[in-house]
């Protein structure tokens, strides 16, 4: 794999091959995937499979015929992009939209910048945001979890959207949440409306633990994001509990877990030093809460990560480690 161009040294994970880390991330994604199959049934499998296969095919075609390189499809990065893209989609999404998302993620998000290691933005998130803006109807019709039941899936709003609308209509957050019958245990297990991979907080946290033990990622980025969200949302909640949901709600709903653990920690698009990672994490946390509470969209995790991706080169410049000399 010597023909890869990875960002200039220092590297965080010297000695590891790309494959080893990439497949480690894939193993870490398994628990969340199992939860999503339990909640959303066959739809979760179909969307994920389509996304992964489409990402692999597009990567192969673009590398071989447009960039005229030796295709490196099996390094695992395209598979991860495919899985993460699928995890960010509703399980009921028509498959042709999934394929468009894969094309955008690989084609625009990754290959246009020169392939693995050169992309500025997380490819899976580029795909998701593109789809969210392009197909708002399909992308915001979330099936309520009902597993393999043959009854037609009911679509419902995500908890974040319910709260957002309630606040806009002048209701209190607690009333709105009570009306959905959503208990905190349901939120932690993931029994709620949402994209197929984001709902299962427990599954995602298991993956986080695995990646920490295997030293695939460090704790800095996810923990900083969680801490920032708790502090910032906590202050808002203390100021006006009627208007602002409590910090645990923010932590366990939407793409918070998925984004913080798997998307924000993408090697290529996140800062290289620990100090940089902390700045990056705080930025994501603050932006997410701001978008969720004050923005037009109910969920801001993906936008926040993309915005901070854009700042990563700047953060790396600012946090250059001291040279040994």
């Amino acid at each position: 794999m010597s023909n890869f161009t990875i960002s200039p040294s220092p590297h965080i994970h010297s000695g590891d091959s790309i494959e080893k880390n990439m497949y480690g991330v894939l193993i870490a994604l398994i628990p969340a995937f199992i939860f999503s199959i339990v909640f959303f049934g066959i739809g979760a499998i179909l969307v994920t499979l389509t996304s992964v296969v489409a990402c692999l095919i597009f990567e192969f075609i673009i590398q071989k015929y447009l960039m005229k390189q030796r295709p490196t499809v099996w390094d695992g990065s395209a598979i991860i992009t495919g899985v993460l893209l699928a995890f960010n989609l509703p399980s009921s999404l028509p498959l042709w939209i999934v394929i468009i998302g894969a094309l955008v993620a690989i084609g625009i998000g990754k290959m246009s910048f020169g392939g693995l290691g050169n992309n500025i933005f997380n490819p899976a998130l580029v795909g998701r945001v593109f789809l969210l803006i392009s197909f708002p109807v399909q992308m915001t019709s979330w099936p309520v979890p009902n597993g393999f039941s043959t009854v037609d899936a009911v679509t419902g709003a995500t908890p974040l959207a319910i709260v957002k609308e309630a606040v806009k209509n002048g209701q209190s957050v607690t009333d709105a949440l009570a009306s959905t019958g959503l208990s905190s245990s349901n939120m932690i297990i993931g029994n709620m409306g949402g994209s197929l991979g984001e709902v299962a907080a427990i599954g995602l946290l298991l993956g986080f633990a695995y990646m920490l033990i295997r030293k695939i990622i460090t704790w800095h980025i996810p923990v900083t994001i969680f801490a920032t969200v708790i502090v910032f949302a906590g202050i808002l909640h203390l100021v006006n509990p009627v208007h602002f949901a409590d910090p645990l709600f923010h932590l366990f709903t939407g793409g918070m877990m998925l984004g913080a653990i798997f998307m924000a920690t993408d090697y290529v698009t996140s800062p290289m030093t620990h100090k940089g990672m902390i700045i990056y994490g705080v930025g994501i946390g603050v932006l997410t809460v701001i978008i969720r509470v004050f923005g037009a969209y109910p969920e801001g995790m993906s936008f926040a990560i993309l915005i901070m991706n854009g700042f990563t080169p700047l953060i790396n410049r600012y946090c250059k480690p001291a040279r040994f000399a």
């Binding site: 468009i100 593109f130 803006i133 392009s134 197909f135 708002p136 109807v137």
Partner: peptide, 11 residues
């Protein structure tokens, strides 16, 4: 219904 709205918008 099959159009990608993002192309009508600035991005």
């Amino acid at each position: 219904n099959y159009g990608m709205i993002v192309f009508v918008l600035a991005p």
